[in-house]
Nucleic acid binder design. Sequence first.
DNA 1: CTTTAGTTACACAGACCTGTGTACTTAGGC
DNA 2: GCCTAAGTACACAGGTCTGTGTAACTAAAG
Lengths: 200, 200
Amino acid sequence: MQLSSKEHLGRRMASPPPKQTMKERILETADKLFYLQGIRAIGVDTIAAEIGISKRTLYNHFPSKDALIAAYLERRFVQPRPSDKPPAEQILGTFDSLERRFASKDFRGCPFVNAVAEIGVEDPSVRKTAVKFKESRRLWFRDLLTQLGVADADALATQLALLVDGSIAQDLVRHDPAMARAAKEAARVLLQNAGVKLPA
Amino acid sequence: MQLSSKEHLGRRMASPPPKQTMKERILETADKLFYLQGIRAIGVDTIAAEIGISKRTLYNHFPSKDALIAAYLERRFVQPRPSDKPPAEQILGTFDSLERRFASKDFRGCPFVNAVAEIGVEDPSVRKTAVKFKESRRLWFRDLLTQLGVADADALATQLALLVDGSIAQDLVRHDPAMARAAKEAARVLLQNAGVKLPA
DNA sequence: CTTTAGTTACACAGACCTGTGTACTTAGGC
DNA sequence: GCCTAAGTACACAGGTCTGTGTAACTAAAG
């Protein structure tokens, strides 16, 4: 079950490959379990056991489960990388990548929305992180729409964000990647209606 | 704290006003607490205490918490009543009523989506109920669109459902009724694009 | 009045969970 | 060879949760 003696990661800054820090190993495993099975469903013992470390070690890196949850959500927060593709293509590509993620059996909805549903009432910081994430994606849309010369880029960005979250929620319950295609078609109509010329 | 001696409901079929059956009282309270605070966050003790009954009584009406959860979700499943308003008005009215619900401080997202996020992994029946609900609303949209003579009513119904769930998810994290208005505007564009003539 | 169904009060088993305390081991750095 | 930092093993306190067992009570119906 545990293979702790076989590998000794966790040293600081070995010359070229620092491999993976213990903190990162914990976060990686917590991410997998929290996301796939739910934050409340997973105890710290389960996370430690999955890595093969003692619970004590986990608590030496994170003062509490709440801190681990916060770190999990912060780590999920990734900005989309700037791309040199045409803006319209980037926007519509969002729904293609959603469709790919929906097709995976490991997709379980939006981690931020799920976290709010699970513990949003008793931990307000979770909701704040979720808002930050939602807003960052909305602004990403808005920036691309502005590049396209769309008049009311702000309003349209919100609408596109609705389609993204709608398809995610629908896929969470239906497990149907077609939800991403439906969202893409709707997005296409909204973009065309705003005067954006779309390829093919 | 408990006022059990003051009221003695729970008799069977008194002539005109059966008032409220014990089972219904339990379900009503479970609904409030499960929805507002989360299924996992609320224990059966809390529900019993809130009504002022003993835990034993609760378990005499529901064999397990899982059964209570299932009944809670079934009870949340309400079909929209048939209306004589014009179909387009009914469709857009959906978003107005969403906006009203968002404005309430007691709105906490879609109970079915939340339930799937909370316990969907370990209780597959929850997801099945959620699918049933989502599909019933989609079909309600589809029927109205068919009445409007929309060609691909099925696809458009799916897209409208995405907007509904998207605005609910966004409001869950943002607490912003404007999400409903944004969804309504998007719906308007999609309907017009499908050839539906809209008032005002 | 007696029977019966529903309820209450309360204890408790068994599980699980977060977080801590403690003594031991291991591996580098100097 | 010694020191220090990190991890391990393991017990345990204190809390919560689901579900059950039991004896007493209450009210309605016959």
